[in-house]
């Protein structure tokens, strides 16, 4: 009997392997391109159904509105690929905006430096606590969420003092445009491209995937796991601070009441974009599609007019649940083979 098994297995194994390869290719494509496909479908339907959607201005509006969430989701993509989560970004976004508005009185450079330094440092603390004390990212960044919100309220006198942007060049960044498209969109686009190169074409990027794929194996293979973890939380903090700064430039002041729940929107966009919440797989292209998809849904609801804009949250939520269920199923398909 044993000999019979020995004889028939090679052929069966080859066939198994071939089937596994095919399934994997299909599943992988759905995972990577699913959000993009849905985005295209939604956009095509909107182009036909909503005349206002078709205008160039509307497109520019969608893109400008999507720039800050894009930056936050970009950082979040790196964090989630390592298997972590960063809940502090919503607070850092608000804090960054207030700091930028306040610091704008000292010039253009200061308006960027203040939020980047503070939010970057909070990222360092997040990363160090997560990497070196092995505390759960959820708890560490929840603490940072509360801490950063407190800090924002303290410097804005319980939110009652609104700092106006005092630097014209900085204000111009938030409201000017190049080729009809806001500066912040170009900034986000450049950072997205840099992020793509970093993630897919550098040793750091591959290490990010390795840490999320299997931390123990990565460590055994010589990946500096702790440094990578600190790195992704610093990136996430910096990008959240920058997002806050460009939002302040657009609004002309450091608004203290925005940003609640931004972290959840970012996580939703990343997951919709095909990044696994468990880490180890995901792409920035997917995240871009995820952010735009959520942005387009919001825009459409505004187009319809008399629909309460909170429906956007309901739709986003339902969509997210759908994606996570689909992801779980797709991953299982991959593993079984």
């Amino acid at each position: 009997m044993s000999t019979e098994v020995a004889r028939e297995t090679p052929a069966a194994a080859v066939e198994d392997a071939r089937r596994a390869e095919r399934t994997d290719r299909i599943v992988g494509t759905i995972q990577r391109q699913g959000a993009l496909a849905v985005l295209i479908v939604v956009v095509v339907i909107s182009l036909i159904a909503f005349p206002n959607f078709r205008s160039f201005d509307n497109t520019a509006t969608i893109l400008v509105a999507a720039a800050p969430p894009m930056l936050i989701a970009l950082g979040m993509t790196f964090v989630i690929i390592t298997g972590g989560i960063d809940l502090s970004v919503g607070s850092l976004y608000v804090l960054g905006g207030v700091l930028a508005a306040w610091a704008s009185q000292y010039g253009f450079a200061a308006a960027f430096a203040a939020p980047l330094v503070v939010c970057g440092l909070i990222g360092v603390v997040n990363g160090a606590l997560i990497a070196y004390t092995r505390m759960a990212p959820f708890i560490v960044t929840l603490a940072a969420l509360l801490g950063a919100r407190g800090l924002m309220r303290a410097i804005s006198d319980e939110g009652s003092e609104t700092y106006l942007v005092k630097n014209d060049a900085f204000k111009q960044l938030g409201n000017g445009s190049f080729l009809g498209i806001g500066y912040q969109v170009w900034l986000a686009a450049v950072l997205v491209v840099l992020g793509m190169v970093l993630l897919s074409r550098t040793r750091f990027g591959h290490s990010v995937y390795a840490v999320g794929g299997s931390e123990d194996a990565a460590a055994l293979m010589g990946v500096p796991v702790r440094r990578i973890k600190v790195g992704v939380y610093v990136m996430s903090g910096l990008l959240a601070g920058l997002a806050g700064a460009i939002n302040a430039a657009k609004l002309g002041s450091g608004v203290t009441v925005l940003g609640t729940g931004m972290e959840l929107d970012a996580i939703a966009a990343v997951v919709i974009g095909g990044t696994l919440l468990t880490g180890g797989a995901g792409t920035i292209a997917g995240t871009v599609a995820g952010v735009l998809l959520l942005g387009v849904i919001q825009n459409l609801i505004n187009q319809v007019g008399n629909v309460n804009s909170n429906w956007q949250q309901v739709i986003s939520g339902a969509f997210l649940a759908l994606v996570v269920v689909a992801q779980t199923y797709l991953v299982k398909l991959r593993r079984v083979n």
Partner: peptide, 28 residues
């Protein structure tokens, strides 16, 4: 096996020792 199942075979093989081009980017 102590490798990363979600990463590609060649990336697993070269993780941490990837060949790089003149720009310092990985030579896929």
């Amino acid at each position: 096996v102590n490798l990363i199942p979600l990463m590609s075979v060649s990336h697993n093989l070269f993780l941490g020792r990837e060949p790089r081009n003149r720009l310092g980017l990985l030579d896929e």
